[in-house]
Nucleic acid binder design. Structure first.
Lengths: 202, 202
DNA sequence: ATAATTTTACTTACCGTTCAGTAAGGAGAA
DNA sequence: TTCTCCTTACTGAACGGTAAGTAAAATTAT
């Protein structure tokens, strides 16, 4: 059978909507329609909109934190930082709705983000701080604020996804020659990782 | 007298609201109240909400594009890129509502952004592409997509402002020691500029 | 100079729609 | 018969936008 339960179906469709339209503009009646049910059916499974949102985002942040912690245990600081960046980048590839959701929360004052998710984020920041500290001890890195490094990693990668429509509109104003081509996301991860690591090195 | 006209007053208050709450959550009745007038008075001065938004954002993007073009004319590619980053950073300081507005547009598919603004953005991208190209010719920089470099500059700087509430929530989970301090924004511009330029150099 | 008219810059009162959330009931399984 | 999982039908509030009217200032006519 491998049948997806209605509850899972609601989560999947609402994740898509939260990602594309954001929390406020996500209309539960539309989500219900896409699931082939009616709105009160959603309220049978979830207390309210905020609870549904929580059910959507918490697993994502949990998975992210876990993958990052797993992949950045071994190696020297350089290898671990590289792993950190690649793991984050690959997570964005494997969870296509996550970029937009995270981006909105960042530009939002994290207004809708449950505490459980900020706790997961704090774990990844701690891990990054740990890596950077190790790098300083190993005389590989100059000292730098983990928050800034986190921003340098996270926001360009996320924006490469979310800003695609904006880039396309911008490209329309360029005449033929001056248009830079859309880079592949895998290449972006590689480029970004190289540049950040180079920028941090002593 | 130096009296601000009602129209200017509406623009100022709505800019604040668009920045803090975003386009959708900005309620024109609230804006009117803050201006000491009623909602239809806004409609006397502006056709609709979208037109008011346009009146708010266009001058900002215009000023940004102009400042960047002015400040990046002279010097070698290295100095010009440095000027690009500093000018952008300082613009964010001088226009405190701009970060949040821009961040929302990026994570939004630029859904509300008028064409006039994307045209201004395309000018800054062209300027950046020009600088990077000059750097390649001067054998200072490795070749890199202007879009990626733009993202590496713009999004961390913007997020340093918009993600402040999120950072504070994250910091609450850290126990004493592992909390990195909030860096000063001026220092962030300097750090980021150094790292990006270092990362790009041959 | 002044009376008549028009324009500016609003107000009060309202409409229509959207949307989160609820009350109550019903079909099928256990 | 009772519990699960829904449906139909609804409420209430928020909000974008409009219709109609008005007081004061500016403009024009006499």
């Amino acid at each position: 059978m491998a049948k997806v339960s209605k509850k899972e179906l609601i989560i999947e469709h609402s994740r898509k909507s939260f990602s594309q339209k954001g929390y406020e503009l996500t209309c539960l009646e539309s989500v219900a329609k896409e699931c082939g049910i009616t709105k009160p059916a959603i309220y049978y499974h979830f207390k309210d909109k905020a609870t549904l949102y929580k059910a959507v985002v918490c697993p994502e942040f949990t998975a992210l934190a876990q993958k990052i912690e797993e992949s950045t245990q071994t190696g020297n600081a350089l290898q671990r930082l590289n792993a950190y960046i690649y793991t984050f980048g690959n997570f964005l590839i494997s969870s296509p709705d996550f970029s937009a959701i995270f981006a909105r929360e960042i530009s939002n004052g994290s207004a809708n983000l449950p505490d459980e998710c900020t706790e997961k984020l704090s774990r990844t920041i701690k891990q990054l701080a740990n890596i950077l500290q190790a790098g300083v001890v190993e005389s590989l890195f100059e000292e730098e604020s983990p928050f800034l490094v986190q921003m340098m990693i996270v926001t360009p990668l996320i924006s490469c996804h979310t800003a695609k429509p904006l880039r396309e509109r911008i490209a329309n104003f360029a005449q033929d020659d001056s248009i830079p081509l859309e880079p592949e996301f895998e290449n972006i991860i590689e480029s970004l990782s190289k540049k950040i690591i180079k920028g941090l090195q002593c």
